[in-house]
Amino acid sequence: MNKRYTLGMLTLVAAITLSGCGAKKANDAEGAANGGNNGAANSSNESNATSGSGADDTTYLFASDGSYAPMEYMDKDVLKGFDIDFLDAVMKEAGLKYEVRNVAWDAMLESVKQGKEYQAGISSISITDERKQTYDFSAPYFESTNVILVKEDSDIKSASDLKGKKVAVQGGTTADILMTKIIGEGNTDLKKFDSNAVALLELDQGGADAVVADIAIVRDYIKNNPDKKLKEVLDNTNFTPEYYGIAYPKDSGLKAKLDPAIKAVIENGKYAEIYKKWFNEEPDTTHLTETE
């Protein structure tokens, strides 16, 4: 989280205001919708905790690229979304104070890596072996997968059918990595954009035959744009599950404070409550409790 970024355009950006899943980049054109790098911070005061870390009076600063609805997005000057609600529940469970701010994807990752201004990033960041070389990750808190978005009359049934087609992705995401392997490095049929919002616009305007992106983003876009007559295509062979985690600088002590809280939030029913709020269905947390 793998892994963000006229009335019609505002509807598009609000519906998928995206960052990703996997690795995402911010879209400068969406600065107003994303709140730039100066989006208002949500904060949480210390609360009674069942898995708290004692007398820690630090206010931890989190970064999130608010361009990936419904996971994280800007509503005027306030960050909202599944990740934001989940983080609030975790920090309350841990009994820790925090703030979360809207920060462009690349700047977010770099700042978290340095560990100076921001102590962590939560932004639909997929846990990958490559990223583990640079960051520590929390226990996984969300299972995702990439899916294909096409027009309802499309005959595309799998990722293999995308060869020879124009495919739009957000550059630097797991969708980009997967489709590069399938279509081929340097293939101009793979159209890479700064955000999923622009990739989706490319499909809408006929410049692409398909978009590949995280399932939550695709489903949210279909739900909010019924007039566009779109459908998702699942491909469990080429697109395997991936897991989002909170990213920390290497050797961060915050991981040890939050992993027990994440486990508690998943097990005590709060996670399911948040999940149902944003996705209107019960979560399957089996792999979250099994995966580390």
Rank of each mutant, 00 (worst) to 15 (best):
K132R: 14
N102R: 09
Y135E: 01
V90H: 00
A29T: 10
L190T: 04
P260M: 02
D227Y: 11
E185P: 05
E232M: 15
L10M: 12
K250Q: 07
K191C: 03
E292R: 11
M71V: 07
L149Y: 06
N37I: 05
E273G: 01
A26I: 00
A89K: 04
T6Y: 09
K277L: 01
K3L: 12
N42Y: 09
M108L: 13
G171M: 09
W105C: 08
N48P: 10
D77I: 07
T6I: 11
L162D: 03
I127C: 05
V103R: 03
K76P: 02
S138Q: 00
T11P: 07
T50N: 15
D227T: 13
P140Q: 04
G115Y: 05
E110I: 13
R219I: 00
T289Q: 00
A107I: 12
M179F: 00
Y5A: 13
S154H: 05
A168G: 04
L87Y: 06
E185N: 13
S154D: 06
A264D: 08
L288D: 04
F86P: 03
F82H: 04
D75K: 14
M108C: 10
P249A: 07
E30Y: 09
R4K: 14
G22D: 08
M1D: 08
D153Y: 08
P249T: 00
Y248S: 00
L258M: 08
S47V: 11
E282T: 09
G22K: 07
S43R: 14
Y271F: 07
A104W: 11
N34I: 13
K24T: 10
M179Y: 00
Y141H: 02
S124C: 07
T128G: 04
N238M: 10
I177C: 03
P283N: 01
E30Q: 11
E110A: 14
V233K: 06
S126A: 15
A23E: 11
D227H: 09
T59D: 04
D28T: 08
D57G: 09
P70L: 03
A139D: 08
T173Q: 02
E93A: 02
L254R: 03
A216V: 10
K92Q: 09
M71L: 15
L12M: 10
S53Q: 10
S126D: 08
G164C: 02
G121R: 05
W105T: 14
S160R: 14
E130L: 10
D57A: 14
K116Q: 12
S19R: 10
A94S: 08
G8Y: 14
N268Q: 03
L254E: 01
L12K: 12
L234I: 11
L149G: 05
E281K: 15
G115H: 05
N27I: 05
A23T: 10
E143G: 06
D85N: 05
Q205W: 07
G8K: 15
I84S: 03
E110Y: 13
N34P: 01
D57M: 13
A94L: 02
D28V: 13
N42T: 09
D259T: 05
D65S: 15
T291F: 05
V78M: 11
N236Y: 08
N2M: 10
L230M: 03
K191Q: 15
F86A: 02
E143K: 15
D176K: 01
N280M: 11
K191N: 06
K92E: 04
A197W: 04
E72T: 14
V78A: 13
I217M: 09
D204Y: 14
D235N: 05
S43N: 13
D189E: 10
N146M: 12
A104E: 12
